[in-house]
Design a protein around this nucleic acid. Sequence first.
DNA 1: GATGAATGAGGATTCATTCAT
DNA 2: GATGAATGAATCCTCATTCAT
Lengths: 243, 243, 243, 243
Amino acid sequence: MSDDLDNVTGSPKAVSPQKKGPVRQSREIRMRQIEAAARDVFAQKGYAATSMSEIAAMAGIVEGTIYRYYENKRVLLLSVLHAWYEGMYAKNIEKISGIEGTRARFQALIWQHLESIRANPDLCRLFFSEVRSSPDYRHSKLHILNRAITNVLMDIVKEGIEKGELRADISITLVRDLAFGGIEHHVSSFLAHHGELDHDAVARQLTDIVLSGICKAETTVESLDKVADRLEKISARLDMQTG
Amino acid sequence: MSDDLDNVTGSPKAVSPQKKGPVRQSREIRMRQIEAAARDVFAQKGYAATSMSEIAAMAGIVEGTIYRYYENKRVLLLSVLHAWYEGMYAKNIEKISGIEGTRARFQALIWQHLESIRANPDLCRLFFSEVRSSPDYRHSKLHILNRAITNVLMDIVKEGIEKGELRADISITLVRDLAFGGIEHHVSSFLAHHGELDHDAVARQLTDIVLSGICKAETTVESLDKVADRLEKISARLDMQTG
Amino acid sequence: MSDDLDNVTGSPKAVSPQKKGPVRQSREIRMRQIEAAARDVFAQKGYAATSMSEIAAMAGIVEGTIYRYYENKRVLLLSVLHAWYEGMYAKNIEKISGIEGTRARFQALIWQHLESIRANPDLCRLFFSEVRSSPDYRHSKLHILNRAITNVLMDIVKEGIEKGELRADISITLVRDLAFGGIEHHVSSFLAHHGELDHDAVARQLTDIVLSGICKAETTVESLDKVADRLEKISARLDMQTG
Amino acid sequence: MSDDLDNVTGSPKAVSPQKKGPVRQSREIRMRQIEAAARDVFAQKGYAATSMSEIAAMAGIVEGTIYRYYENKRVLLLSVLHAWYEGMYAKNIEKISGIEGTRARFQALIWQHLESIRANPDLCRLFFSEVRSSPDYRHSKLHILNRAITNVLMDIVKEGIEKGELRADISITLVRDLAFGGIEHHVSSFLAHHGELDHDAVARQLTDIVLSGICKAETTVESLDKVADRLEKISARLDMQTG
DNA sequence: GATGAATGAGGATTCATTCAT
DNA sequence: GATGAATGAATCCTCATTCAT
């Protein structure tokens, strides 16, 4: 096919200057290398625009080697995002541990979630655009992990209800939808605009709106009755004093 | 991919039996034909899995003709979704017209939005998965239209603030993010699971949570308590004076 | 990716000296071109060793064009072989038309079949090695055509039986298996050795063996009885004459 | 191709839970292990669809070990089929040993061959589809063994000729081609359809057709007729002489 | 306006085989 | 003897888009 007529020096074909043989690595090390390379390229160019050969080149190996560890490109992407999500989960748990009070824990979780997004906007964008709305997502470990994260928030809300601090008539899942949906909707402009993200303010306001709404309001008929009773007694006394 | 191994004669993949000459249609009619065909195929198979030739075949024309009316596949998709979104916008406006009261208008808008999603889950899924998180979305007419819809909600909130019914210290855009983000997050399982969507209940609860949170606290227990306290002090003083 | 630093003349990239635009051909002409090219390359290099780009290059087009007419490589192969087989079928029919007599027709068919093999050993080898023992063969048009060819032989045998020339107690399909299986087995060495094929002799001997075997043998007990009767009568007469 | 999208952690595709050190086996035992595993997987999935790692896994070893015993995948396949073919050869020899008479021995050999095919249709299919029409077959031990088997039949025919039972003017190799080609052609539908195979009937009829065809016509009706004619002429002459 | 033939770049994936450990 | 990590070449196929007719 190729007569290689240009190769007048007679040197062997396709020999890179320093040809170092394959370097054997332990499975763990190799997988970390590949995931790190994949994370960088995926985050920079997006899933579709990234080729396996680019990832391989960045990891210093050949394409075939990737396939010893990851079934296909998609699995590699999900693995990368899973590793990132595991970190998010751990940080969320860590953040709220030791914090007392429903509102404080709620706000801390929102804050940490926003902070994690702010720290890795590329991976987050990748997750939203390539995985989140894909059919295979709902059967992935990533989805389970995502559930675990949202469950943390729901548990906080549940405890608040059990402690009598929050209304018992609200849908916990709807609170979850509002919180995480609100976060997503809010950061979407940040992820697209590359603008700033004031997660302190957002966490505070978001918590404020949602929690104030679901806080058990003491302004019930009963409580008002009690106040009214007090007022009547005062009134009666005044009457007696001035009467 | 192809089970058509029987087709060993290499007969044309899609040859129309009788060759009827080109049919000239008015520009408007043609575009409706094409958009209708595109909507059906896109909704059924998704954007990537749909080929222009499929759309052309369903519209009864050839691929080349589509390009007389739409620059490219992407523009066609956006046109289809734009037409759908215009309907949504109109219905949202219609729904809240004549309705008085911040809470009632807020809830009606949420309800109508959920109803529109319920009516066209395929197009909605298409929008979320193919357009929403795509870079070109933010420069499309679709995005402007989307802004118009969310602006309707923000206007309701603004009016509520101006009328003194809602707190003035809240971020209106965050309310928007909570409402529409919450909706998206909530319907995502409906769009994926093909489960049911109780938009009556969701609209009511979502409105309840968000609005109760942003309502200006006119008559709280605390304020009443303080008033009662003041009255008691006055009463005590009167006691001393008159006693 | 490529900085094209070598291209110091600033000439446009990858422009072949005489760049002639795409040549539009009628569907029929194009398909003949592609099949002819495919036949040559497949026959020369075998199915697996042939790449679609080679076929395209030989046909003077690009790979993609092939796929407008043939679903995939396999379908193209089957199409090529189908065209060849159609010719074989036509020649077989032509050969025996006008020939009378079971034996003559039988032998003529065998002869023509061998002749067709001898004329296109490459395609025949391709058929035997790539298609014949493949699972998809049994559902292909090629298989139907193959059945048609073997049915011609079986019809000849049937007619022979009906005319009383051939034994009625033989399995017609087994005769078919012997004839065509025998041919295949015999030519396999020719196809592999690239030796010579004396189809005159083979057709004669094969016919001789099979037909002599299936000819209704008069050497039945009944016929021998009749002869014995005659001999007894002669014997009796001699007895009388000499007695 | 891979449904394993759940495997998002990139966990190894086939990691054995507990790592047991290499087990040393005698060369013979190891080779039997490997061949048995290869036979099963090849027979089940076909040559191309079988990977060396599958065979290794089934044999409880790793790929590299296979290469200590077999040069490459092809050699392994041929070894597997050779072992099977050796059994066939032995059974064929055993079957005809002690049987007297050309026809009886001929038929017994055909019968046994069909029986062996019936007993291992998977290996037989493998042989026909993957090896039989491959160029490397003609230089393999398998081919020599195959020759040995067909030679047994040719020897039977030769002996028949030498004993004067069979015509001397027939091509012995053509008889071989008819017999084994006929068998192959006949069983091809059995191997594909997974239908039944009545080898008793087939062996009898095949022998009947071929042998009746190649039997030296010692006592045909015609010859008896001629003898009778001669006798009649003699009788007539005697009549005239004695009349 | 309509046709539909032609384009052509582009990348994931496989797996037999090697060889350092 | 056994391991198993690494290799790396090799190619089928898609389909949006163009433009001569």
